[in-house]
C-alpha cells in the first residue's frame, strides 16, 4: 500500500508544460531552447516535461506574448522586437548597437539589466508572465552583392534591415535603407532588387542569404542587442511546487553554461561554411565599428525613443537609458 501511495505521490508531482516558439529545433536558436528544456527536465529529476510546438505551429512569433498571458501555451519564446509598444522599455536594447562580443559578457549584461532596471521585468509582469530564461544570438553582419570591405562601400547600396533603429543607422551610414517582407529577401538579393541585407549572421546563414549575396561584412562588436526570452505564465509558475521553481533557476544556469559553447562554435562554423563555399568574409575594422556606433543617428534614435516613451506615459525614460548605458559599457569593458 505504501508503495502504491508513493507512486501516486510521485505521479501527482510531475507536470507537463507546453512551449510555443517560432523557430525550428535544428538551428542555433532551436538548440538554445532545446538545451533549456533538457536542463529543466534534468533539474527536476524528470518531473517537468515540456511539449514544444516548433516552427510557429501553435502561434506566430508576434502572438506568443498574448498567448502565454491567456494560457494558450504555458511557456513561450518572446522576441522583444515583435512588440514595439507592449514591450517598449525592453526595446531600448536596440538603441545601443555596440555591445559585448563574448557570450559570457553578453549573458552577464542581460542578467544585470533585469536586475538594475526593474521596470523591464515589470513590463513582462504586466503581461501576466515572467522571464524564465534568456539567451543571445550572434552579432550583426551585412551580406552584400558587391564587395564591401569598409563602411564607405555601403554608400548608396539598397540594404534591407528589419528594425527601424537599424534602418535609421544605415541611412546615416549613407546606404539606402529598404524594408522588405522577409519572404521576399532571398529573391530580392538574387535578382538584385536589393543590394544587401543587414542582420545577425546566423539569421543570414540560416535563410541562405549569404548564398545570394556572397560578400560578408562581419561586425562582431555589433551585438544583436536584444535577449531572446522564454517566459512562463505567472499563474502557472505560482502553481509549481518550490522544488520545481528551484528547478527553473538551476536549469537557467546550466543551460547558459552549455549554450555558451554552442554560441562560440556556431559563429566559427558559419564562418567556416561561408569560407568553404567561397564567399568573401571581411571583419569590420575597429575604426568602422567606432564610426558606425557613434553615428549621430544613434543619438537620434535614443531621442526618438525617449519622446515616444514619454508620450506613452513613461515618467523618466532618460533614467532607463542611463541604466542601459552603464550596464552595457561595463559589459563591453569587462
Amino acid at each position: 500500500v505504501a508503495l502504491a501511495i508513493g507512486t501516486t505521490g510521485a505521479a501527482a508531482q510531475s507536470v507537463t508544460l507546453s512551449f510555443a516558439t517560432n523557430t525550428a529545433p535544428n538551428n542555433m536558436r532551436g538548440e538554445a531552447e532545446t538545451i533549456f528544456i533538457e536542463e529543466l527536465q534534468k533539474a527536476s529529476n524528470g518531473e517537468i516535461n515540456v511539449v514544444p510546438y516548433w516552427g510557429s505551429s501553435l502561434m506566430e512569433g508576434a502572438e506568443i506574448l498574448g498567448g502565454v498571458r491567456d494560457g494558450v501555451a504555458d511557456m513561450g519564446f518572446i522576441n522583444i522586437n515583435y512588440y514595439p509598444n507592449q514591450l517598449l522599455l525592453n526595446s531600448a536594447y536596440n538603441l545601443f548597437p555596440k555591445g559585448p562580443s563574448t557570450y559570457e559578457n553578453i549573458s552577464w549584461a542581460f542578467d544585470q539589466m533585469y536586475e538594475q532596471v526593474p521596470e523591464l521585468s515589470e513590463e513582462f509582469a504586466g503581461q501576466g508572465q515572467r522571464i524564465v530564461y534568456k539567451y543571445g544570438v550572434t552579432p550583426y553582419a551585412g551580406a552584400f552583392k558587391s564587395p564591401v570591405t569598409k563602411l564607405d562601400d555601403m554608400k548608396n547600396l539598397r540594404v534591407r534591415a528589419a528594425s527601424r533603429w537599424y534602418l535609421n543607422m544605415l541611412d546615416g551610414a549613407g546606404a539606402t535603407p529598404v524594408s522588405m517582407p522577409w519572404g521576399d529577401v532571398y529573391q530580392g538579393l538574387q535578382t538584385g532588387a536589393i543590394d544587401g541585407v543587414f542582420t545577425n549572421i546566423d539569421g543570414i546563414h540560416r535563410a541562405s542569404l549569404d548564398e545570394a549575396a556572397q560578400n560578408i561584412f562581419f561586425m562582431p562588436d555589433l551585438w544583436l542587442a536584444i535577449p531572446f526570452i522564454i517566459t512562463m505564465n505567472e499563474d502557472k509558475y505560482q502553481a509549481l511546487s518550490d522544488e520545481h521553481k528551484e528547478a527553473f533557476a538551476k536549469a537557467d544556469a546550466a543551460a547558459r553554461e552549455r549554450f555558451s559553447a554552442v554560441w562560440d562554435s556556431t559563429i566559427a562554423d558559419i564562418l567556416k561554411a561561408q569560407e568553404d563555399a567561397g564567399y568573401t568574409i571581411v571583419m569590420a575594422s575597429p575604426e568602422d565599428v567606432e564610426a558606425f556606433t557613434t553615428l549621430p543617428d544613434v543619438q537620434k534614435n535614443q531621442e526618438i525613443w525617449s519622446e515616444e516613451a514619454k508620450a506613452a506615459g513613461v515618467e523618466n525614460p532618460e533614467k532607463i537609458l542611463e541604466g542601459f548605458d552603464s550596464v552595457i559599457s561595463e559589459a563591453v569593458n569587462r
Binding site: 535544428n26 519572404g183 540560416r206 535563410a207 541562405s208 545570394a212
Partner: peptide, 18 residues
Amino acid sequence: PPSGMFILFAIFTETSVG
C-alpha cells in the same frame, strides 16, 4: 521557383534555398 514553400522548407531544414 520562386516558391514560398521552399523558402519555408529551407528555414526548417537549414538547407540552401538556391
